[in-house]
Design a protein around this nucleic acid. Sequence first.
RNA 1: GGGCGGUUAGCUCAGAUGGCUAGAGCGCAUGCUCGACACGCAUGAGGUCGCAGGUUCAAUUCCUGCACCGCCCACCA
Length: 898
Amino acid sequence: MNLETPRTTELPKSYEPKSIEGKWYPFWELERFFVADARSTKPVFSIVIPPPNVTGSLHMGHMLVYTLHDIVVRWRRMQGFNTLWLPGTDHAGIGTQYVVERQLAAEGKSRQDLGREAFEKRVWEWKEQSGSTILKQLRLLGGSCDWTRERFTLDEGLSRAVREVFVRLYNEGLIYRGKRLINWCVRCRTALSDLEVKSDPVQGKLYSIRYPVKGSSEFITVATTRPETMLGDTAVAFNPRDQRYLSMRDKTLVLPLLHREIPLIEDEFVDPEFGTGLVKVTPAHDPNDFDMGMRHQLQMISVMDEDGRMTPEAGRFQGLERFECRREVVRELQTQGLLEKVEDHLHNVGHCDRCRTIIEPRISIQWFVKTKPLAEPAIAAVEDGRVRFVPENWAKTYFEWMRNIKDWCISRQLWWGHRIPAWYCDQCGEIIVAREAPQACSQCGSSSLTQETDVLDTWFSSGLWPFSSMGWPEATEDIKVFYPTSLLITAFDILFFWVARMIMLGMKFMGDVPFHIVYIHSLVRDAEGQKMSKSKGNVIDPLQVMEQYGTDAVRFTLAIMAAPGTDISLSHEKMLSHRAFANKIWNATRFVLMNQDHPTRRASAIVSISTLQQELVCRKSELSLVDRWILSRLANVIKETQISLESFRFHEATHCLYHFFWHELCDWYLEFLKPRILDSTGLENHQLSFRVLHFVFDQALKLLHPFMPFITEELWQRLPHEGVSLAIAPFPVSREEFIDPGAEKGVATLEDVIVKIRNVRAEMNIEPSRKIDVNLASSDPAIVPILEDGSIHIRNLARCAQVNIMNSLKNLEHSARRVALGVEIEIPLVGLIDFEAERAKLEKEIARAEKEILQIQQKLSNPNFLSGAPESVVQSNRERLIVATDKFHKLRESLSRL
RNA sequence: GGGCGGUUAGCUCAGAUGGCUAGAGCGCAUGCUCGACACGCAUGAGGUCGCAGGUUCAAUUCCUGCACCGCCCACCA
């Protein structure tokens, strides 16, 4: 037990986040509170970070996902779990390479100028220089990661895991090398997976081209958006159900410009309704055509190279850039009278996800993962609930994709990444796939081997993250203890890229799911609901707003807005109001601190919290109504917080705590207590009340700590406390003994009575300093003792001189009457207000209202006004009339009561 | 073309398995230098819960259709 004597340090009147945020993180880290223990016997809670791009810096999306991580992790840690939050970064192959290439471009250089080795060195340097930025920022926001376990996807250990997986999948035939049509980015000069292609609408043209029929003067017409690809055509197709072309089925066509003979084929794929019902088939440059080419054993002619320039196959168009070639082809066709028509055509075109260049479907030799066999167990794992999605409708999206999964192109012609562990024998061409570089060819024994130059898709290594980060393929302690992880928190946009692949690879190599729950968080948008982007200039920088409003306020804002399934429209107003909440916490606690030093209250600080709680349970009968009430409310709030957190309803947990702290604890409980606290005579029961107060604040700060770690730690350390840090203090547990519906109902009645009296005071303009008498009556025998008990509070909070509790009201003239929850209220007004003056005031206002009504009515009955004035003006006058009439009636009512 | 989500106060949004006087923050109005807090306190105004049907004793909540907005996937050349 570590108890400190209360401090009397003067605290600033308003909360200054900067003055305290800096000191706690180093303390937590130094004390190793966040380090998980593989040998602990406590129940385990583990989570791995979605590794950010190593060269990235914190944006609001990160801030949200890390805040949610930290809330869950801190909560579980306080609950006594052996908690691991494993941090790290991703090498982000194409992304990082693109960034460094742009840097080089600014120096007027290309990666080819440097050469592979020098380029890789350059990227590593960049990584060393900027690689820890985002992790430093993660500390700033309070992320309670276990830094002793930090990993990087290109670490030696993780690279070993990558090679191990590659070799095993290859040996099982689940990785193969093949010549396929893939998505090619001519700028990045690499293959991409289907997921890395984003299709955007482009305003293009649809060209109708005539293909002459061999041995006749006839021709047929095909339509295309990409005339340059016709140079690679190896057939024209129609649907066999299409009667129009059946008679032509055996004809041969002559490809314009190149005069190559191509067949007319029949294929179900062709839609007879579109265009002429005839499709040119270019197997080497279109996915659908590729499939047709495979079905009909068509020749595949590549007319474009890896830079998007025309190959020798394109005849005299060789060397032209692809769009230049398009113009040339069109012009040539036109000259020859083969261009029938050109129409505007809006269609979707694939773009490189990274650099936005238009994708070129291209045939090349690449490495693929055969995904179907991996997908099956991964689908089953979600079907039978071993992996659960929150919100659960995401499972549908997951199934949809997984059930239609296509093979995954994993090779990239990049230099930054895991080099594929395959070697080619220069002698016999044998392919050797191995964990380490082989000495000699397994086939011919030649020692002249060349390693594959391609690297792997970044997501290949990310897909192993939950176990590679824990030391796999070694059978480490960490894997035994922390795998499968408890939870994954991530955004929906990497559901396929990452989540699906982790499930597939986890099932395959660990024989178990990588996590039990996938929580899909929402997108952070700006106040207008727009996506944040640099070009729109609506980006909110987390570091800047953390500075401006305090980290805790920003965290709290994100959490309270994180309703599952809806996007977050982040605004400065929201963060401002939660900064105010932090300030409220600060000042309420400051109030307690300012008053705890009185000798009669010291006693409350001498016991531990658990002892104090037990004492309050035992002495419940001695507690006052409001003490029993706040303890009951606290117990219910703990329960609600618990339930909300268990179901990832962060917005509910935060709402509940916000309301409890501000509107119950501060607005009512502290106000109820003030007279006692300020009374320094030191009566025994005051001391008990103070113990309740102390207990409630301890619990409230603990409840808030996962959301607002800095301010709560600071204040808790200043209060008498047990333990060295809130970070490892026990999370409150709801005690049934404190739940007291009677007290809750009683205080609700008191509050309502007080509100109704204030209501009258405000309406009648009774000066705040003027004390009034009230008569209260209730037919409910249970309420009478509550009123008697609470009359002191009614006097204090409604500023009453006398509170008379009676069987029935006196029915006084010149009084105001109200009904609260089961209580009738009567307030004598004689002597309180100057009836004459009050009446005169009201009559004057009534006259003014009448005049206004008359004026508007006159206007509205004037046909000239109605026809001449703009509709908006007429409408606003109608509205004004309604308002004025309403006001008039209210004033009349008040007058009649006087 | 298929799928998902949204439509509730002036604004931004909560309202899980149907029943509360439909809530919060900001904003607005009025009044408060009441010994924690003006980043505050008190009081108040403001809602046909997108539209049309249906189920039910009861629908903001469940079902069907429609309208508008946003997103994802697949794409017809």
